[in-house]
Design a protein around this nucleic acid. Structure first.
Lengths: 212, 212, 212, 212
DNA sequence: CATGAATGAGTATTCATTCAT
DNA sequence: AATGAATGAATACTCATTCAT
């Protein structure tokens, strides 16, 4: 039994090493330019072992993406707590951006988009994960704010996307087109502007309180 | 002179055929999977002729993208005319979407994004063209509406992106992840929703509430 | 261990087969006309295997040359023994010529010369090997003859080249320009003439007249 | 008639331009790497014109070589005059070397050697020109010196090659293997050494000892 | 069970030569 | 007579995947 466990743990260690090496290699030059042989070498396994774990390059790519996106929705979301609506919304925007920018997530996203003709289903899954799952979490916050009376009652399924769209426009979209994008220093002000715009639309009658 | 003209016309015909074939091939399986030999065959020229026109695959790709994006800003923009702000804004949204969806523009955009690691500069140019040039045109409309008193005075450079972001979120973003995206039937309602949200923020009577 | 040994032996067998096929192919039409694919085919390996062993055509060419020239200086050199100076010198000339004419060495030399613009360093190495190493061995013989009193004391570094130059002029130089050069039947007389001329310069009783 | 002359002169001008451009291009990277298209461009003619003048690359190469070697034997040779045998011989060595080193003759020679498998006949011709023609001229000088009593009577056909061989060994052979060979500063001393060795063999008082 | 050598189909690119104008 | 665009065969090199040990 112990032997089996040992083997499993070795196997999982290798699997993790492969995934890590693959992610790095994919990120450097995109899906096509990454070479299985080099991934294997970087992961300190033979190509045969690599293929034992992932039966094809596409499978490996998918695993890399799934691993990256799998973690996203398990993150704790900011509690509404006693903070103002503005503060809470800025908080969820920050969470969103943190997830989007850490670990080269943007680079992975670029690849998923680039590989749409080849792996359309994967792209759909990533999209669904992003919109359905992530936005779903954020909706809970919006709903809580509505319940608390900080937001006017409205269709939060739509409104979460309005907020998301504005944030993406200013922050994610540029990152998608820029190789080594760095989050700009005035990010807080940008977030603030996005949230203010959102509150102008959906904020309680409380129009007067808007904007810094 | 006659000879030269003849040659030029033949040359331009071939160049156009190559660009067309290249665009199609690129769109099918992405940049990497497209083969120069097949592009040449589809364009009814030899590979050598192809290379006389475009000295490398990357050059050809760039030419395809530039041709696609070159036309965009020369399109006439909707006149403000006597229409209401809401109508005018829906109009520019429609223009934006028409440009984005015709001729498989979304597919090209996907490739540009996918090739960011390889051709970062091209991506920057496309981004600049999209944001600077296109939004620049739309801003003129917003400024006209402000001048006319239909919109509250505000920073239109920012607000055009707010509108753009919301529209992208609902329409462009899904298309980016979907192989053969078809504009949904309820597109008009979606546009209407986006514009309404925008007007809530920047519409006239709301002048007092404008952020920064 | 057994596996590794097996693999090494297979690998070395293939490497040798590749080198042999490469040498033949290079000799047929020169460096440029030799095709990697055909070399691979002749060696009964795939092109990929060829490239695993030699990372480029140039590398392969260099390996062929180095293999050919590597053996040269490990050959035993004629012992001075009790033979006359004339006999000894004829002996080393014969060794020199045997090395130069066996295994199509002249053909390889032609290629090295032809590839000087492309591989200048390789040419330098071959030249150094020829002059420094080979002549170095022959010098030992001359020095022995000087010590024995059969040659007048003199600068053997220069004189070995005088002998070599004369021999080359009559035998190597024509071979360099002739596709399938065959050593002529009167080679012995030619060698004899060269050695006689050399001895006229450096032979014993003539000691007083040495130049410089 | 004048028109015809004009045409001929234009044609010859172009031919000369082509030959010049070809020589340069051949010298840069060797026969194979030179491209007909670039030669044509450098010569300011169309490829078709180039092919009107020289029906193939090989023909062009041959023409370049022939032009280069054609001039050699028409050069005036040093007169024996009243100079000493040593001076005269140094003089013809200098002539030989001047011919060999000017206009990148060594580079052309390298190519001829490298192309022996492809153009064996050309190599033969160049060899014959070098040995027969050039040495023939130099023999006249040797014969004159013999007649004058400065050299012992002997077979000058052989002895001219002995001198030539020694000179080649020290000066031409290294140049053959060195990309941008520069004649060393101590060339005069080297020549002097070669001539002295030659005179030791064939100089007057030594007449008795000449080998066969 | 792990290895890494081997594969063969595929890629972008080049070039001597021809031909319609 | 001159052009230069067009050709198509050829070339070095790569890579995802398999298989004998």
């Amino acid at each position: 039994m112990g032997l089996e466990d040992y083997r499993r743990s070795v196997s999982e260690t290798k699997r993790a090493a492969i995934l890590k090496a693959a992610r790095q290699n994919f990120l450097i030059g995109g899906y096509s330019k990454a070479a299985m042989a080099e991934i294997a070498r970087d992961a300190d396994v033979s190509t045969a072992t690599l293929y034992k774990h992932f039966s094809s390059k596409e499978t490996l790519f998918r695993a890399v993406i799934e691993e990256a996106y799998g973690g996203i929705d398990e993150r704790p979301i900011a509690d509404v707590g006693g903070a103002s609506a503005h503060e809470v919304l800025c908080g969820i925007c920050r969470i969103y951006l943190r997830q989007q920018f850490e670990d080269q997530m943007n680079g992975l996203l670029r690849m998923v988009i680039g590989e749409v003709p080849t792996s359309p289903q994967l792209a759909q899954e990533v999209f669904a994960r992003g919109v359905t799952v992530r936005y779903g979490q954020f909706r809970k916050v919006l709903d809580a704010l509505v319940a608390r009376g900080d937001l006017a009652p409205h269709d939060t399924e739509t409104s979460v996307r309005q907020l998301g769209g504005i944030v993406k426009e200013f922050i994610v979209w540029p990152a998608l087109f820029t190789k080594d994008y760095r989050i700009p220093d005035d990010i807080e002000e940008t977030i603030d502007g996005c949230v203010s715009a959102y509150l102008t639309i959906h904020g309680r009658p409380a129009a007067a309180r808007i904007a810094k």
